[in-house]
Design a protein around this nucleic acid. Structure first.
Lengths: 356, 356
DNA sequence: TTGTAGGCGTTATCAA
DNA sequence: TTGATAACGCCTACAA
């Protein structure tokens, strides 16, 4: 049907001319911003169909409107790693919800340390930005965003003054888990932490080392755990992965003489890895070893066990971020939103085994 | 430092005026498209800093250039579900690679069945589109994209004529795995397939049922498996998840009288679930039951076992898609790229156990 | 090396 | 209900 096959794509002006109406009228037919008589609408639509015009060019529309309908989400590190983390994906899920009213798209960006200023973030046609994560690198991204004057929300990160954040009671929640384990009688407890900084090195964690750590989540949860077990040895994992938890678990359980009776992990995935390591060594969970995690995600493949953990409202965090963005885009100021975790006693923790 | 705090954001024209140069000169200072004397550049930069101008407005730039620097990736179903699948995340990873030259951002979209035409895809300021997945819904997205005249690449899906695709030899690769198992002497074999359609129902799969299936990947792999074991019973899983594999595994292994000696799963995650189900029943893998998967992903948490599987080049698929997009954006035609899987014998398959 | 001018495709405003 | 007009902010021939 499309007859007029010229080299150029048809514009709304072409459509209007062909339909014998003003461009503004044709525009309104597509935007629905004003009333148009049925006859005129039909004429315009027919002309559009004839010319193969499928609607306004989003680029021109966003220039004119001052809105692109896109919200950037800045993730730390490789996208792949980010999406390997169930908490991140849950947050993204909530974010799409919270942004639903805007029907905004989500532009995935990583805070790339390499391209310092030519950053995609500096040139992306976005209306607002959500920063996820926390390390020092986020600060650089934050500076770019603020200088562009874009609304921004930071999820669990170190934001400057006046930047709306989504925060979690990490320290308190971690302390809750630790308290539960202490109340079960455990005294010999070891910790598995999330990475301390962007170097993501697997290593023993000392209070001195924590001074130089940059990941707030790790620091806060560790603080909560140490508040109950001040002397608990800790090893930082290189990432929140089951296999990584298994590796660290092996390290912590290697010495049969000085084996902890409980291990607290800073994420559920790490906890599952620790359980695997225990099973490898023939230790029963929770009879021989209690294991607790953090996050409360649906762990795929834990058999019949239910992990003792602190359930964080990951989806809600994402949704709240989306809602704040939506609000700021309406011109109202964004606010910092606090969330709390809920302790969940599972079947992976039990009373301290009787000492031989 | 930023003195001129007027209501409006500064534009490049403001900067030029303030610096006492032409707008084109100021523009060039930021784009670097032509040579500018050091003195002029300094003047412009100083004026920009003074006015709080941080660079060209991406919206205006993209209208002018006709490019937004954004590529849309359309995923099937909830984003959360998509990123739960390691193959998808690996592909996304490769995609970012393949798109690196363009330094394009990735806009995440889902093919939402609800909003049929007002779809975000119709109004997103993107330069090209990558469609991942396969079901009927993809067709609707494809139509929108084609009517917009955007370059598009389809990864493992049913594309129309003339649409570049990224395809995998699913049937042949699945047959390879099946052949390996047959050569080990197995005759009583059962299959666990991926979902047949968007309904994602867990159910027995009959040849008649396959007629109405819409997911190409599932159909092709099943065809390959049935080519070797024509009578193998099959059950479709509701998704590619460990827990789901475990459920289906329990179903297939429930009847001790007619227990298969080998189970072929259409994904590694499903295979891991089947192994869990076997362990639950006290069956040893591979001594009592051989299990094979598909994908060759790094399965997190399989203990010491190495899964027998067909390794698909997921990252390369994504990269190829990105490269085709890049090529089409340069004006050259995109081509369909074929990839083949590589069979990998692991330790989860062994000779058929002697019958009692 | 710098300046001029026209237009990218829309949409908001206002008047008719 | 429709039409004319003026931006939106930038880029790039082309001329000087």
């Amino acid at each position: 049907m499309s007859s007029h096959e010229s080299g150029r794509r048809a514009t709304i002006a072409d459509v209007a001319r062909s339909a014998g109406v003003a461009t503004s009228t044709a525009s309104v037919v597509f935007s629905g911003k004003a009333k148009v008589s049925a006859a005129t609408r039909a004429k315009v639509l027919a002309a559009a169909a004839d010319l193969g015009y499928t609607g306004p060019d989003p680029r021109a529309a966003s220039l004119r409107r001052g809105r692109s309908g896109i919200v950037a989400v800045v993730l730390e590190g490789h996208l792949r790693a980010a999406f390997l983390d169930p908490v991140t994906t849950a947050m993204m899920d909530g974010l799409t919800d919270g942004l639903a009213d805007l029907s905004a798209g989500i532009l995935l960006l990583r805070d790339d340390p390499r391209e310092s200023d030519g950053s995609a973030l500096a040139n992306a046609p976005v209306d607002a930005v959500v920063l996820i994560g926390c390390s020092g690198r986020t600060r650089a991204s934050l500076d770019i965003v603020r200088s562009r004057g874009l609304p921004v929300v930071v999820i669990e990160g170190d934001a400057g003054e006046g930047v709306p954040r989504i925060v979690l009671d990490n320290a308190a929640a971690a302390a809750d888990v630790a308290r539960h384990v202490r109340d079960l009688g455990h005294r010999d407890v070891a910790l598995v932490t999330l990475p301390l900084d962007t170097a993501r090195e697997r290593m023993p964690v000392t209070p001195a080392r924590v001074e130089t750590a940059t990941v707030d989540v790790t620091i806060d949860r560790l603080e909560g755990m140490w508040s109950i077990f001040p002397d608990a040895p800790a090893i930082s994992a290189s990432g929140s992965l089951i296999d990584e938890g298994q590796r660290v678990g092996r390290m912590l359980l290697a010495d049969a003489e000085h084996r902890p009776t409980a291990i607290l992990a800073q994420s559920d995935l790490l906890a599952v890895g620790v359980i695997r390591a225990a099973e490898e060594l023939g230790l029963r969970v929770p009879e021989d070893l209690s294991v607790a995690g953090f996050d409360g995600i649906a762990v795929d493949g834990l058999g019949g066990l239910v992990l003792t953990t602190s359930v964080q409202p990951a989806v809600q965090k994402g949704r709240a971020a989306g809602e704040q963005v939506a609000q700021m885009l309406k011109g109202e100021p964004g606010v910092t939103v606090h969330f709390t975790c809920r302790f969940r006693a599972g079947t992976t923790t039990a009373a301290r085994p009787a000492q031989p």
